[in-house]
C-alpha cells in the first residue's frame, strides 16, 4: 500500500513533467533563448508548482509532526551557501543549457521512448558517478592527511 502510493506520486510527477513541456528539450532551450525564439512557458511550470508546494509544505509542517508512512520529515540540514553549492549549480546550468534536459525531466522523458532521452540519462549517470568518485577521492585524501 505504502509503495503503491509512492508509485502514484511518481506517476503524478511524471504526468506533470510530460504535460508541462519540461521533458521537451526544444522548449527548455527556447525558454533560455531570450534573444531568439523565446518561449516563456517554463516559467509557468515553476509558478504552478510553487503555488501548490509553498502552501502545501507550510500546511504539512504546521499540522503534522510526522509523515503518514515514515517516522520523520527528512529535510536537508545544510544551511551554508558555499562554493560547492554555487559551483555545482553553475555547472548544472551549463549542462542544462547544452542538452536542454534537467534530471527531473529526463526521467519521465525516458517513458516517451525516444533514444535521445536514454542517451542523456546514460551520460547523466556517468556524470553522477564521476562526481561521486572525485569527491570520494578528495575525502580519502583529506582523511589520510588528518590521520
Amino acid at each position: 500500500m505504502r509503495y503503491l502510493i509512492v508509485y502514484l506520486i511518481g506517476a503524478l510527477f511524471g504526468t506533470g513533467i510530460a504535460f508541462s513541456g519540461m521533458a521537451n528539450p526544444a522548449k527548455v532551450l527556447n525558454f533560455f533563448d531570450v534573444m531568439g525564439p523565446f518561449d516563456l512557458s517554463l516559467l509557468l511550470v515553476m509558478v504552478g508548482a510553487l503555488s501548490v508546494a509553498i502552501p502545501g509544505y507550510a500546511l504539512i509542517f504546521r499540522k503534522r509532526n510526522k509523515p503518514v508512512f515514515t517516522g520523520e520529515f527528512v529535510l536537508p540540514k545544510a544551511k551554508l551557501v558555499d562554493a560547492k553549492l554555487v559551483g555545482g549549480s553553475a555547472t548544472f546550468g551549463i549542462g542544462w543549457g547544452i542538452a536542454g534536459f534537467c534530471p527531473g525531466a529526463a526521467i519521465p522523458a525516458l517513458g516517451l521512448g525516444h533514444s535521445s532521452a536514454f542517451i542523456f540519462v546514460a551520460a547523466l549517470l556517468v556524470g553522477i558517478a564521476i562526481a561521486r568518485f572525485a569527491t570520494r577521492v578528495e575525502f580519502f585524501t583529506a582523511s589520510r592527511q588528518a590521520s
Binding site: 503524478l12 513541456g21 511550470v45 504552478g48 503555488s51 501548490v52 502545501g56
Partner: peptide, 20 residues
C-alpha cells in the same frame, strides 16, 4: 505548463505528506 506545474507541486507535497 501551468497545469503540469500544479501536478508537479502536488506530487512534491504528497511525497512530503506521506513519506516525509
Amino acid at each position: 505548463s501551468l497545469g503540469g506545474g500544479l501536478l508537479i507541486g502536488l506530487a512534491a507535497v504528497a511525497l512530503m505528506y506521506f513519506w516525509g
